[in-house]
Design a protein around this nucleic acid. Structure first.
Lengths: 116, 116
DNA sequence: CGGCTCGTACGATAGCCCTCGTAGTACGGT
DNA sequence: ACCGTACTACGAGGGCTATCGTACGAGCCG
């Protein structure tokens, strides 16, 4: 049997990741912010509860699911915590330069609007 | 008085263009396709009716309005025709490299899925 | 075991969005 | 003046989405 601390979650395969879904996922301010934080700590996996978001826990769960189903984020359980990491390898392979351009654009806008 | 062939349309100023709105606009397949065609003929202004889209004229009007209001496209009347052009200058100034990365990603996906 | 924390499931609500059809306006040409 | 073309306005339907509250399951620790 698999290790007790592993409940598996459905992720799209690399080839199933659709650009439209990625863009739609990032068109929500809460999710864009999550992705920016994940990119900032790109060598760490962050738990859902690590984020201080202006929505309830239910809504947070919803946003993380959208991110996972769009292929932007990989989620794994570690005990009761759910760890999140950007799927940078898959995204870079599919769309080279896209993620960096998106993150740079988000950083620019945050700086411009003072939302940093 | 302005030339008779000029009915003005509301466009967001460069500084008002929001990344989330741009991404949302591009997350629809019909609009992504429009933007790709506009980028391919980037030195030409294309009329709305130039596009052969799988939706009715009403819906086409709707999509072009979303593109205009998001700041992706500039629209001007020329007689009865409404000409459309990408706002590449504004987008490149706000988010350098973003538009090219998005277009390249869309081209990659189209090639991968044979939807070209 | 008992409780605590982390996250999920489900239902509900309200708003947005894609789509369409019909009716109408603006402009150019005959 | 008249007609045709290009686009718009308005309204409606149906689906998706963001949000929440409450109730629940899964794992850790005393």
């Amino acid at each position: 049997m698999p290790p007790a601390t592993t409940r598996d979650l459905p992720h799209p395969a690399r080839e199933e990741i659709r650009l439209e879904s990625v863009l739609h996922a990032l068109s929500d301010p809460v999710r864009l912010r999550i992705v920016r934080e994940l990119a900032a700590d790109s060598d760490e996996l962050l738990s859902c509860s690590h984020f201080d978001l202006p929505v309830t826990k239910s809504t947070t769960t919803h946003h993380f699911r959208v991110l996972r189903e769009s292929g932007l984020v990989r989620q794994t359980y570690r005990g009761t915590a759910k760890m999140n990491g950007l799927r940078r390898d898959d995204l870079d392979a599919l769309y080279p330069g896209l993620l960096d351009a998106l993150l740079a654009a988000a950083a620019r806008q945050a700086a411009r609007l003072g939302t940093d």
